[in-house]
């Protein structure tokens, strides 16, 4: 018989992954009116941050990979898989570093910023590989700046969600 904690974790991870997929879909309904490829709010990244601060890097990585695979197969198709994966992996990697340093004075907002910026950098690198050109890097300054802005927003939101969820999780 699976122990109680194992089942609890599995269910929580599944709920988080489902939330991330739903957020990704919702975000797709409202494309931002800017003529630059790769700019979006990064709502699904909130789930990665929440998973990281509640359950640690392994959980965040697991949920990210589940989300990327599911959204690619459900909505956007295989060609977007490499972009999502490159952006997502780099962003979880960077956020995990910030999470490790959280005692040193980096708050969850830093995690959001690093997540947003690294996600965009990952997408540029993927685009450079797919299109076999370095000219995509002309977009890097604007993608770094939007990564900062969206990162602060997702960081603030994640902070609220983490503090509320952690009190709920301790009740069970």
């Amino acid at each position: 018989m699976m122990n109680h904690n194992g089942i609890k974790k599995m269910v929580l991870f599944a709920i988080l992954a489902a939330t991330a997929i739903a957020l990704h879909f919702v975000e797709g309904l409202f494309p931002l009116p800017v003529p630059i490829p790769g700019i979006k709010l990064g709502l699904a990244n909130i789930v990665s941050i929440v998973a990281l601060y509640l359950f640690g890097p392994v959980a965040a990585l697991t949920i990210l990979i589940l989300r990327v695979l599911m959204t690619s197969f459900l909505y956007s198709g295989f060609s977007s898989l490499i972009y999502s994966l490159a952006g997502g992996l780099l962003s979880v990697l960077g956020m995990s570093c910030i999470w490790k340093l959280r005692e040193k004075g980096f708050s969850i907002i830093s995690a959001g910023v690093v997540g947003g910026v690294f996600h965009n950098i990952g997408q540029i690198i993927a685009a450079a590989f797919v299109l076999r050109t370095s000219s995509v890097f002309v977009y890097s300054p604007v993608l770094i700046i939007t990564g900062i802005i969206t990162g602060v927003l997702t960081g603030i939101l994640s902070n609220i969600i983490v503090s509320r969820l952690s009190t709920v999780l301790h009740m069970y």
Binding site: G105, F106, S107, I109, S110, P141, I144, I145, G147
Partner: peptide
């Protein structure tokens, strides 16, 4: 927002500025 957060954001902005200048 803590002090280190502001420093981190400033650091990324600096990189973006340098990139803009370099590209121009």
């Amino acid at each position: 927002m803590k002090k280190l957060d502001v420093i981190l954001i400033a650091f990324f902005l600096l990189i973006a500025m340098v990139l803009i200048l370099w590209i121009n």
